[in-house]
Design a protein around this nucleic acid. Structure first.
Lengths: 118, 118
DNA sequence: CTGAATCCAGATGGATACTG
DNA sequence: CAGTATCCATCTGGATTCAG
């Protein structure tokens, strides 16, 4: 038997687990920026992203791209060029992040004004 | 003089910086869960949050709450009880995160189904 | 060009004990 | 109750070098 409060708390636990799931995927110093870069251009090569995301090293870029690929947010395609280039694009599932990224962008702008002070 | 492409790229850089700003605030293993807990109950005491957020230690909770306070997302109030209790609540600014948290929750549920498989 | 491998300093975070 | 302090293992991430 469960009373209303218990149900409510169960609900809340579920919600927190869900947010946590999202953050597990999105955490990592560069992940959101990487997604943002790819998303913005549609398709993007390794070296391009390396340029877009200020401060990231190839080591980290490689690592985080791999994680994004494992989580099925990003699709990796090797192009048969000389030398080889690799193209990254968002999967359908990755594209569902657009709303979140857009919201984070808007919030970030407001927040900066709030903290840094106009 | 700047051509369209340059303008576009400048815009994109700004967007990425904004997302990065948001993530700087929200990064940290527990931050979102903490906010989610406080947000859900309106006001919440230290020990309550410690219970809500599964796995967090008092050391980490203390640290991340302090960071949230610095970023003006959370307001800390010492209650004159015996023994002393401390109440945390979201600031007006902190409340503007609700949309994002809500989005992250929804996305997290979908994502789990996608990855873990139903 | 796109990474992987190695090395290494510094940050992160858990466990535990302690204070007002 | 609400933290703080300390110790310590692990993780993170930069720099550099190397390979296909």
């Amino acid at each position: 038997m469960s009373c209303k409060i218990e149900e409510f708390q169960q609900e809340q636990k579920k919600r927190m687990r869900a947010v946590q799931d999202s953050m597990d995927v999105l955490n990592g110093k560069w992940k959101i920026s990487i997604i943002s870069s790819i998303c913005c251009y549609g398709k993007r090569r390794f070296s391009d992203i390396l340029n877009d995301v200020e401060g990231v090293s190839n080591r980290m870029l490689s690592k985080e791209l791999k994680e994004l690929e494992i989580n099925q947010l990003v699709k990796r395609t090797v192009l048969d060029t000389q030398p080889i280039t690799v193209q990254y694009e968002l999967t359908e599932h990755g594209n569902t992040l657009q709303t979140i990224i857009s919201n984070l962008t808007d919030w970030g702008i407001v927040h900066r004004k709030k903290i840094v002070g106009k």
